[in-house]
Structures are given as C-alpha cells and as structure tokens.
Write a protein that binds this DNA or RNA. Structure first.
Lengths: 303, 303
DNA sequence: CATAGTAATAGTCTTACGGTATCGCCAGAT
DNA sequence: ATCTGGCGATACCGTAAGACTATTACTATG
C-alpha cells in the first residue's frame, strides 16, 4: 500500500540522495545512521523496488532518480503548505476586502494608510470596493467585505468600529453668494438657504448628524436637491442650486466658483470609522487596524 | 517543528476538506472519526493555526484553503513518485541507450524489434547510438550504453550476449567480373583477388572470422583497401577496387554494377548479438531482450 | 593480512496512531 | 422549556513505527 509512505521517508531519502552517504545524511537529519538505514529500507519495501545502490558507493538507481525528483517537489509543497497556512493565519497573506465611501479617501491619511499596508503586507491582496455606508454594513454582515470605511460609526451589536479620523464641517457656498465673505461663519445664517443634500437612506446616522447640527442652529434644512456623492453636491452648489455643509476634506476640490467657510460651532464635526464583524477576530483585520492606527501616535487626527 | 508533519496528516486533511464532514471523511479514509479528529488536531498543532472551522458546519478557514492547495499537490507528487519509481524499476520507463553497428539495422527483424519495443514501452526513451563493435564493448563497460547490437558475440567475463540473428556470408563482386556468373560460388575462387576489408581493430573477432573462412578455403586475403562501413566497402567493390565477402543483409544494396554470390560453404555465416553488462540485471534490458526474442518463436533466424 | 570505513542487524524504549466507549454541544421537534 | 438526534471532542488502552546504543558484516586499501 502506498498509504504506508510518510514524509519522513521522503526527507530521509532526499538527504541520502544529496549526501550519498548514510552517516552524513543521518547527521544532517539529526538522527543516527541505523535509523536512516531503517527508513530507507522501509521506503524500498513500500515502493517495492531498489532506490539506492549501496556498493561500491551510495548512489541512486534509475528508479531512485525518478523518485527523487517527485519526492523533492512533494516535500517542498508540504513545507510550503505549512508556511503559507501560518502566514495566512497571521494576516500576512490572503485576501482583504475593504469597502470605502469614496469621499473618505479624500482625507490624506487614509490613502497613505492603504499604501503603507500594501507595503508591509505585500502578500495580502487588498481589494477595495466603493460603496455607501449602508451598503457596507450589509456587506459586512454578509461577509462580502472584511472591513468598511464609512462616516459615523454605527451602533450595532454585530459590528465593531473604531474612529480613525475626525473632521470639522464646512459650509459650501457658491462664489459671489451674499454670505460668502462672512468669517467665522455662523451655521444659522444658512437657515433660509436652499440645501443640496443626500438621501437619508445612504447613511441615516450621518444624515441625522447634519440635520441635528442645523436644528441646534435653529432651523431645519430645506433640501431642494439630492445627490449621493459629496463631489456631486459641491458641483451642484457651484452651479448655484443651493448651499450645503460637508466634511472639511471636501476643500480639496477647489475652483473659482466655490467658497468654503469653517463653521463657528466647535461641535460641528463628523467622524470616519473603520468597521468589522465583531466576532471576526481575523488577524488580517487586526493587521490593517494596526497599520492605520500606528502611522500617527494620536489615533484620531482632526482637520 | 515542521518535521513532525506526515503524509498521513495531509491525507486526512484532504479527505476532510473534500467531505466537509468528519464521519464521512473518516469512513473514506478507512479509519474511525476520533482518529481523524486527532489527526486534524495534531495537524493544527503542527502548523500552529486553525485550518478547519467546525461550527456551525465543517469548513476550511482561509489558512486551511491555502494549505489545501499545496497539500493536495504534495500528496499527488508523493504518490506519483512511488508509481514512477515502480514503473522505472520494472523497465517500463526510463532511458535505454542502445549501441548499434549501422549495418545490423539492415536485417529487417532488428528495426522491427525496435519499433515493437517503442510501442510496448512508450515511456522508455530509447536512444540509439551508432558505434563500432569495439566501441560498444568499451561503452558497455563504462556504462555509457545499456545494450550493444554488434557482430560476433565477444567472449568476455563482464559482458553477456545473446545471438539474435545468423547470416550467411556472400561474396561481393563488381558486375562484369570474370567470376560474377559462377553459382554456387566457391570462396577459394577469390584466392588471388584484391580484397576490400575493414581494420581489425574495429571488431577483432569478426575480422578473425573472415580471415579464418578464407584460410579454410586455402588462402589469406590480400587487402588492398580498408573501409570501416560495409556500405562503403560495397561501393568500393562497385568502383572496381577489389572484391569482398560480407553478411547477406548487404544484398539490400543493389545496383547495376554490383553482384552478390552466396558462398557454397555451410559454415560461412556470422552472427549478430545483443550484449549487456552481465551484472546489470536491469529490467529495461530484460524487457528489450524479451521483445527482441519474443517476436518470432525461433530465436535465431537465418537469412 | 590487517585495518579503517561504512552499511546492516539486534535489542530496547518511546511515541504516534488507531480502536472502543463516552461526553458535550447545538439545532430542531414536541 | 424539555427532549432527542447528529456530530465532533475526549479518555483510555493496545499495537506498531521509529529512534537509540551496541555490535556485526562487508570492502577497499595500506
């Protein structure tokens, strides 16, 4: 029966084939010469043919040479299997799928963190999928993504999260708007302005956050136009459809027809959070978090 | 230590990965479920990481999937190694180097035997090298060829041989020669003719055989020209340089300017023999001999 | 003929592995 | 809520593989 064959036989045979000497091969294997003799004899019993010619010197037979080629490959694959399993389990290798809200990548720390992760974990395939916050939470639950990068950490028993960036809100106004020069900027002054916003379903907590800020300033925003992407909202403001408030990173979009004003409320900020399945203590996820957190000592930079 | 790993672990793991069920996998392996559980546990201890998730159902972890790919290849190679070693030792596979004197291949049985061997042993690479009889004996001793096909079996303690073909000698004369019509042909009539022959060193026993035949006919051949290849000697006869005697197979070279005459001596024959190292009971050699002998019941056909 | 080098053999002990019996856990039915 | 069946884990025991020490057998070489 072939099933008698063990990797130990292969290891012994390969050492012998490479040393052409029972004593030296045994030494290399860390066993004694009689033990090696036994292993080789057993191997020849299993295969049913002579693999090694012992006299006048140790040398492989033709069958032995044929065996040797495959044996070495077999052993290499076995060792590689162990090695790769270990690296995979340590999160050094494998597939990591990350959902992102496109606008989060405007914060320079985040692309930088991704780049650093790829450099430190070259064997991890990082697959990035753009999706809304709501879609990410669903995708996490369905295990379609391993991590989500979204705005406003959700309160969820299954999903854990960690705030990675804190951003102030800014008012976004078309150039030439009658409020465009005020500084510092009171949110209340937008009370009667038409708003460009996003649908609540895309990210209810974030939507609520925006509305609550307006409430605190004494008004309820009058939404005249919706657009899911913040870039689109800014463009619509630029086109004169209304005003909006948005996270500070949006100021990276600059243009002649657009003006940003920092709000005067210290509580007017929003957070970007990294989310994962709470029960999934996957080391890949840990590794990504480590890199993201590790790159600057203070875990929550604010802009 | 990786060195703890055994093929048994791999076999168990692969069965489990394919069945996704301890009971069924164990059954397929011909062992009981607790034994399989132990093997998998041990494997996970060796690799140092979980390879199998057991709840809610048996499924591989990502590390397990990575392990699986290599493990299967490793096992396949190990099994292939055994299989190929066995086939090689049976002479069904490997390299068989055959030295031949070119003229022997003029006897139709021999190319036919080679063809048949290739058909019945498709995994044996048959390498044919043209060389003189003397060169073959040396090459056999140096293990540069496994078999030699030559004229006149040598008496040699190291080299075994088997006669495979017996051929009559024929006289080779230029057309129009004054003896070219005599039939049956007495060798003695060539007594005073100039001979085209080969150097004794190419094959001393064969040379001696030719000379002894002439002696028996009452003369010593007067050699006026030497050529190692029998084809060349015939061409030289054709060109009128002299006469010669040669094995009957040479009659396959026919032409307007050449005439063959069968000698009237019944003892005027020569043999083609297959030779091998006496101590080398290689099954490839056996296999070749079997095919060569087996194709016609009578082992020594004569022409 | 003696000797050194090298592989094979003998005898003993440890450990791996397989078997039987049984436990623990979870899901679906009552 | 409790019962029950399916399934994997654990406990314990017996057999056999494998390693070690000591020794023998064979060869090539001085």
């Amino acid at each position: 029966m072939t099933s008698q064959l063990g990797l130990r036989h292969l290891r012994c045979f390969i050492a012998l084939a490479e040393e052409n000497h029972f004593g030296r091969a045994a030494e290399r294997l860390g066993i004694t010469q009689p033990a090696l003799t036994q292993q080789i004899r057993r191997l020849e019993e299993i295969t049913g043919c002579r693999l090694v010619r012992r006299r006048p010197r140790v040398a492989l037979t033709e069958a032995g040479e044929a065996f040797f080629v495959r044996a070495r490959r077999s052993l290499a694959d076995a060792d590689a299997a162990v090695d790769i399993a270990r690296r995979t389990s340590r999160g050094e290798r494998g597939l990591l799928t990350l959902g992102v809200v496109p606008s989060t990548l405007l914060v320079p720390e985040l692309p930088r963190a991704i780049r650093r992760f790829r450099e430190t974990h070259p064997e991890v395939e990082l697959r990035i999928r753009e999706m809304s916050t709501t879609e990410q939470l669903e995708a996490l639950r369905l295990e379609r993504i391993d991590l989500g990068l979204l705005r406003e950490a959700p309160a969820d028993s299954e999903i854990a999260s960690k705030v990675v960036v804190r951003e102030r809100f800014v008012a976004v106004l078309p150039a030439g708007h009658h409020l465009a020069t005020a500084e510092p900027f009171p949110l209340a002054s937008l009370a009667s302005e038409p708003f460009v916003l996003f649908g609540k379903s895309l990210n209810p907590p974030f939507y609520t956050r925006v509305v609550d800020l307006c409430r605190a300033a004494g008004f309820f925003p009058r939404v005249v136009q919706e657009a899911p992407e913040v870039q689109s909202r800014v463009s619509l403001v630029e086109a004169g459809l209304g005003v909006t408030i948005a996270p500070a990173c949006i100021q990276r979009f600059c243009g002649q027809d657009i003006v940003y004003r920092t709000l005067d409320m210290p509580e007017a900020f929003t957070t970007i959070a990294l989310c994962w399945r709470r029960r999934d203590r996957s080391p890949k996820v840990e590794a990504f978090l480590d890199v993201l957190m590790g790159q600057h000592e203070q875990p929550v930079p604010s802009t």
